[in-house]
């Protein structure tokens, strides 16, 4: 391409110097293209490996859209048919950068990447979400929630529960314990105590309690988001630096 351009300029010697400079400048600013190819970002759930049912895709997409509306954080689920011979760690951050998940400057994006053919899964976390969704927590979600489901060949369950866990952690509620182990009696007692404590708290500070409730996910009604579904989703310019964790099954 470069030679072609130079040949064209050679026909007109008077402008050749100037054009050559322009061509050279363009050439220098060109970024080398990434060696990997990535699927198109068609929505918040990109099921390129075809392991999810349409209903699951729709409900996950809706959940992630609601989540973004409430927090501004972008979480995307991607299933990948092939890692093209590289590690999922290498693939993951480049996918996140290519799609630019998260807002520019805030880098508040996260990806759940599943490569069923290589049996690899990764949670890729943007710089801005690293304090909440730490490597250790990401690893716990993968090892404790996603991989057990994948080992039972239940891809849908793994992806759904994994996404729920990611959203729960990002919402400051920690990893849903019930997904790892059956709730024991002491858990029930603890929940009851927490509930009681909250009721006492609410009776003293009703406004604070109402605010806490409204800012958590226990919202009732009034959340009609329209039917925009898949259309119009794009990354906000976020970047990734390798935070998160991976696992295989």
């Amino acid at each position: 391409m470069r030679f072609q351009a130079l040949n064209q300029t050679a026909h007109n010697p008077r402008h050749s110097g100037k054009l050559a400079i322009v061509v050279l400048c363009v050439f220098f600013f060109c970024q080398t293209a990434a060696a990997l190819t990535f699927p198109r970002l068609t929505g918040r759930v990109v099921d390129d490996a075809h392991i999810l049912s349409p209903q699951t895709i729709q409900s996950l997409d809706k959940k992630l859209e609601d989540y973004e509306r409430g927090t501004g954080n972008q979480v995307v689920v991607a299933t990948i048919p092939s890692l093209q011979g590289t590690d999922i760690e290498d693939y993951g951050y480049q996918l996140g950068r290519t799609w630019q998940i998260g807002q520019k400057g805030k880098d508040n994006g996260a990806l759940l990447i599943v490569a069923p053919n290589e049996r690899k899964v990764r949670i890729e976390v943007g710089y801005g979400l690293e304090p909440l969704l730490t490597d250790a927590v990401s690893s716990t979600i993968i090892q404790g929630i996603i991989i057990p489901a994948f080992r039972q060949n239940d891809m849908e369950k793994g992806v759904i529960n994994g996404t729920d866990a990611v959203l729960s952690v990002l919402g400051g509620k920690g990893i849903p314990g019930g997904l790892i182990a059956q709730p024991s009696v002491s858990d029930t007692v603890l929940l009851l105590l927490l509930f009681l404590a909250f009721m006492i708290f609410a009776s003293r500070h009703p406004f604070l309690a109402a605010w806490m409730l409204s800012s958590s996910s226990f919202r009732i009604g009034g959340r009609h988001t329209g039917d925009d579904g898949f259309g119009g989703f794009s990354g906000g310019g976020g970047s990734f630096g390798g935070g998160g964790a991976s696992g295989s099954w």
Binding site: E89, Y93, D135, A136, S139, T140, G241, G242, G243, A245
Partner: peptide, 18 residues
């Protein structure tokens, strides 16, 4: 130890990307 291990793995990955 498991938590530290995953943090270390994540950090090595960050180093390689940086």
């Amino acid at each position: 130890f498991l938590a530290l291990q995953s943090q270390l793995e994540g950090t090595e990955n960050r180093i390689s990307i940086a």
